[in-house]
Each structure stands twice: as C-alpha cells, then as structure tokens.
C-alpha cells in the first residue's frame, strides 16, 4: 500500500455552543496522501484545515466517513499507539509541546513512552537532533532557545519515534521569518533525504510553492488539488476564498495584463526574475 493517509467522505462537527446550530467543520473530505510526498494544505481561518490535520493521527475521530493511516482505521482504539507512532504531529505553539526542561530529555519523551530500550533511545535522540541540526544544543534548556529552534526540537521529538509521516499543524504561524525558514528547510530536507511524508498545514502561500502537491480547502471541503504550478496561478479563484497568490504570481499577472509575455507559473523569486529578464530581452 503506498498511501499513508486516506480519508473517505470524512465529516466532522464541533460540539455547538449553547443555543447555537452545530457548525460542520468538515463536509465530506476525500483525500489521499501518498508515501514520500510533500503536501501543503492551504486554507484561510475556518476552512477546516486544522480539523483535517487532527484527524490524521486520531486526535479527533471522524463523525462520518473513515480515516485510514497506513491501512489502519483511526477509530480502532487498539491501534491508537501504532497510528500515533506512524504519524507524528507538530503544533503551532512551540512552548506548549515541549515536555522536559532539557532538550535531549524532551526528544527522548516519545521513544520513552513507546518502551524503546535505553541504548536505542540514546541512538535515536542523537540521530534526531542531528537530523534537525540541533545536536550542539542537546543539554540546553528549551526556554533559552528561539522559536525556530524550539520548533526544530519539537520536530526532532517526533522524528525520534521514527514516523512515516509528519503533520505540521500551522507550525510556522507563530515564528518570525528566520524561524520559518529554519523549520521549512528542516522539513524539506527530511522529506528529501529520509523520505518522510510531510503534510504542512499553513496559510502562507510562499510555503506552498515548494511542495509536491497543494491541497486548497474552503468551508470544510477540498476545492483545489494539484501541483503548485497548476494551483497557485489560479489567482481569481484563490482570491474568492480569501487567499492571496504568491507575490511572484501577482507580479507576473500584473505584467501580463500590461502586455508583457511572461509565464504565470514562475513561483520562486529567482525563477520569476529569470522569466521577466527573458521576456524583456525578446
């Protein structure tokens, strides 16, 4: 089986506030995430993207429909630990997911819970810290680290469980641009070098540009799904659901309207600059 996460007609509603109608956060989501793929899930606030993420390792259980993680139904409680070991989750606030007051102890938390033997924990902790480039901080106190570093520790804590997939639920939202860069570079490297499947939930369009696949959500449904070059250029549709296209696409779109012959799908800044230079020369 090459799908790590598969949802079928997934629906979910949060318990309503008193005297109000329940709001359905997911209205039938069919989504398949393949092993080794870097998927970005986009959507503005209230689109259901975080709710979807929380279904990917059984933090929330489906109200209707089914979620399979590596072939395991998330509603089967006996498989809970195995599901959470396969799919690790990194959250938004780095402070609220670090458990221990020494970096290496925190990274060891997951394997300790799984009952991994001590020597093996040591090996995994060292390997995980190396993978996120934080090995020199292994004896530091987490509250002395920057936001990006804390988030990398959180990622290391997940890697130490040796998961097949990491879900990042708006993990870059609270970080400054430097911290975001650090986290994104780390995640991308893990995806390329270790073949870990990544599902990155975000509302930053530029983060979507580096994905293999972009899934756009709006009011509980998947509205667009495809490679970034196909999705991020659909300017009007994105605007209609409260998202902005990347700045590069905005610029190229404006130039095209003014009659310059440039392609729309030059997503990165270098690509965009190259495309404009070429158009100006010809």
């Amino acid at each position: 089986m090459s799908d790590i996460i598969k949802t079928e007609h997934l629906t979910f509603s949060y318990p309503p506030d008193e005297g109000k109608e329940p709001v359905q956060a997911l209205k039938g989501v069919d989504l398949t995430i393949e092993k080794g793929c870097f998927t970005v899930i986009l959507g503005h606030n209230g689109s259901g993207k975080s709710t979807l993420a929380k279904h990917m390792n059984a933090v929330l259980l489906p109200e209707g429909g089914t979620v399979w993680v590596d072939g395991m139904d998330t509603r089967d409680e006996s498989l809970l630990l195995e599901i959470r070991r396969r799919v690790g989750m990194v959250f938004q606030n780095p402070d609220n997911q670090i458990v221990a007051n020494v970096v290496e102890e925190d990274v060891a938390f997951g394997p300790e819970n799984l009952g991994v033997p001590t020597e093996e924990i040591r090996r995994r902790v060292d390997a995980a810290l190396r993978a996120v480039g934080m090995e020199e901080f292994c004896l530091h106190a987490p509250h002395h680290l920057s936001g990006g570093q804390k988030q990398r520790i959180a990622i290391a804590g997940v890697i130490a469980m040796e998961p097949a997939c990491i879900v990042l639920d708006e993990s870059t939202a609270m970080l400054d641009p430097m911290g975001r860069r650090e986290v994104l570079d780390t995640v991308r490297r893990l995806n390329r070098e270790k073949g870990i499947t990544i599902a990155l939930i975000t509302h930053h369009m530029d983060e979507a540009a580096m994905a293999d696949r972009v899934v756009v959500m709006d009011s509980g449904r998947v509205v667009m799904d495809g490679p970034p070059r196909k999705i991020l250029v659909r300017l009007e549709e994105l605007r209609a659901i409260g998202l902005d296209a990347p700045h590069t696409v905005e610029l190229l779109h404006g130039l095209r309207e003014d009659g310059l012959d440039v392609p729309l799908d030059a997503l990165s800044v270098t690509e965009c600059a190259g495309a404009i230079a070429q158009a100006l020369q010809s």
């Binding site: 070991r85 290496e104 938390f109 799984l114």
Partner: peptide, 21 residues
C-alpha cells in the same frame, strides 16, 4: 494543548515506559 501534544507522542501513563537516563 500540552496534554494533546503529549498524547500525540504516545504518552499513556507510566506503564511500559523506558528511560533515556
């Protein structure tokens, strides 16, 4: 939030837990 994060890292009480140190 911490409780959810701990559950996501397979925390299920002291049973069968091992230690780094």
């Amino acid at each position: 939030e911490l409780a959810v994060a701990m559950e996501c890292r397979c925390y299920h009480g002291g049973q069968g837990r091992t230690k780094l140190r």
